[in-house]
């Protein structure tokens, strides 16, 4: 009998998002598309620096913000 991979639901920029359990912040970015160095990542209000993203495991219910620099005055 195969063990089904566990799926977790998190919030990404305020929207529900599902991904395999054990995924890291880097895995999330790779799936969504932005280049690592052009975004800031925040998990549950804590900044996750680029060097810490591969090891930052996401848990059910985590709130992730992926932020960019856009036009502004």
């Amino acid at each position: 009998m195969h063990k089904m991979p566990q799926i977790i639901t998190i919030q990404v920029n305020g929207e529900p998002f599902t991904l395999p359990g054990g995924s890291s912040v880097s895995d999330l970015l790779a799936g969504i598309g932005p280049e690592e160095k052009t975004v800031a990542t925040v998990v549950n209000d804590n900044i996750v620096r680029p060097e810490n993203r591969p090891a930052a495991s996401l848990e059910e219910g985590d709130r992730v913000e992926i932020l960019i620099f856009a036009g502004g005055g």
């Binding site: 920029n13 969504i32 598309g33 932005p34 800031a40 913000e65 932020l67 856009a70």
Partner: peptide, 21 residues
């Protein structure tokens, strides 16, 4: 130059000014 911090939107990847600036 001034920039604003905004949520990444995969529908509008051109909003990201980091690399061009």
């Amino acid at each position: 130059v001034t920039v604003a911090l905004r949520r990444f939107n995969r529908e509008q990847p051109g909003d990201d000014l980091f690399t061009p600036l």
